[in-house]
Design a protein around this nucleic acid. Structure first.
Length: 263
DNA sequence: ATGCCCTCGCCTCGAGGA
């Protein structure tokens, strides 16, 4: 089973790129972030025609998350994080696929820091931690997948010294991510590639992709039940090289699911 | 210290992204 995450940076402007990549990699489940469109303008028909069922939660211009499943309709289990009824950003959506809970998330950027946007990011992270703890307590196979807007360590940044005061790398945010992982989650990419420089995002500016001057900010966190199934975790760099593409690359993991119990 | 480049909106500049 192949599960991917992809910050598309505008689902309508990026539809051709998305469909082309789906055809090449054939992921079974895809978590999308930054739809940047209201619900009514989500290209559900085109995605359906490509063989994917989809659930989504958009909003005008900003944010927005979706979950796609190949030849299936994801069963929505949650929309929005608990803990703040006034938070109307579309940043979390969760579905059950093949008996696995998959949370698709888009953590706030938080810049400029310090400031109200940074405070919102930290508050959002605390809510994620609280909810993630509940998921672990359930003991079910679960993944928290998406754009965390955090580089967890210096290995995850092209020039760490330039990012120390940025909302993606400040110590408070790195600690929030580390505390989340310490609950018992496994960062799939780092687990399989502990010492490798791996990036998932490159600015559009200054040929950063060609120079591989990037950041690793799109992550897969696996609950303990999922870790033994993890076969591979790779950044799909090719779509990032295409014209008019997102500034993120898709990231994909492969799970070897155990055979279903026979009756 | 900042811009660099790109998205979207109703719009040719501004806000936000990371």
């Amino acid at each position: 089973m192949k599960i991917a995450t992809y910050n598309v940076n505008g689902i309508n402007g990026r539809l051709e790129i998305l469909l082309r990549w789906l055809k090449e990699d054939k992921p079974d489940v895809v978590c999308l972030q930054e739809l940047k469109t209201e619900n009514a303008r989500f290209p559900g028909k085109e995605i359906d025609k490509a063989g994917y069922g989809a659930i989504w939660r958009g909003e005008k211009s900003w944010n927005g998350v979706a979950i796609l499943a190949r030849n299936a309709l994801p069963v929505m289990t949650r929309r929005g994080l608990p803990g703040d009824p006034d938070d109307n950003h579309s940043r979390y959506m969760e579905a059950a696929v093949n008996g696995i809970l998959i949370g698709c998330l888009y953590v706030p950027n938080g810049n400029p820091a310090p400031g109200p946007k940074f405070d919102y990011k930290l508050r959002w992270f605390r809510r994620l931690q609280e909810y993630a703890r509940e998921l672990l307590d359930l003991g079910v196979p679960a993944l928290l997948v998406g754009d965390y807007n955090v580089m967890p360590t210096e290995l995850d940044v092209y020039r760490p010294e330039r990012w120390v005061n940025d909302a993606l790398f400040r110590s408070e945010v790195r600690k929030a991510y580390a505390d989340l992982v310490a609950q018992g989650w496994t960062d799939a990419v780092r687990h399989l590639h502990p010492d490798e420089r791996i990036y998932t995002f490159w600015k559009y500016w200054r040929n950063s992709f060609e120079r591989d001057a990037g950041l690793r900010i799109d992550h897969f966190l696996l609950s303990p039940a999922v870790v033994p199934w993890l076969r591979s975790a790779t950044v799909r760099r090719k779509p990032r090289s295409w014209a008019h593409t997102s500034d993120h690359a898709p990231v994909m993991i492969e799970l070897d699911l155990p055979r279903m119990e026979e009756d």
